[in-house]
Design a binder for these strands. Structure first.
Lengths: 79, 79
DNA sequence: AAACGAATATCTGAATTTAAGATAACTTAT
DNA sequence: ATAAGTTATCTTAAATTCAGATATTCGTTT
């Protein structure tokens, strides 16, 4: 199994997550607060230093109000 | 952010992953081999002791030939 | 029913990730 | 130029994950 961090797909994923947070008009502090985490948690995530698991991804989708399937489909095209 | 391990969604996810592996007619040893991992890796994963990140999930979908979107949609319904 | 082989589960340090919390480094507006 | 808001980085402790071995479970065959 490929090491997730640093892969093209992981980079694409976090780029999309950042985009979605910004579209939602949230700062890292605000998102962190809704997640019950520190701002540095979001920063680590968005700088690609931490993996995002499937369950977390769904939680992010719910908070940031994006369609997880849609994002996944876009990631599928990244190799 | 909720601790993934032990959540209903994570349990549902691994149940589906096991189902998909079995449908594909693969043993843990065979899946592990295709992943370039040990059998104990697959066992840990399938016993819910290890998180599955989004990128890994897509890799599993490719090997086990399932539609990641479809699985994700089913997980969405689990709370 | 005992024994065998195939499949899965569990254990144990060691290595790697992740987290908390603080602080530093941008940004942008005044 | 400064202040406020935002994001990035650092450190050390804590938690996860891994390799590899071993144990257990489950079917089959005799």
């Amino acid at each position: 199994m490929v090491k997730t961090l640093g892969t093209a797909r992981h980079k694409a994923l976090i780029a999309l997550l950042i985009e979605k947070r910004e579209t939602a008009g949230l700062t890292q502090v605000e998102l962190a607060s809704r997640l019950g985490e520190y701002q540095s948690f979001v920063a680590r995530l968005e700088s690609g230093q931490r993996r995002v698991d499937v369950v977390e991804f769904l939680e992010l989708a719910s908070i940031l109000e994006f369609e997880p399937d849609a994002i996944l489909s876009r990631l599928l095209k990244v190799h």
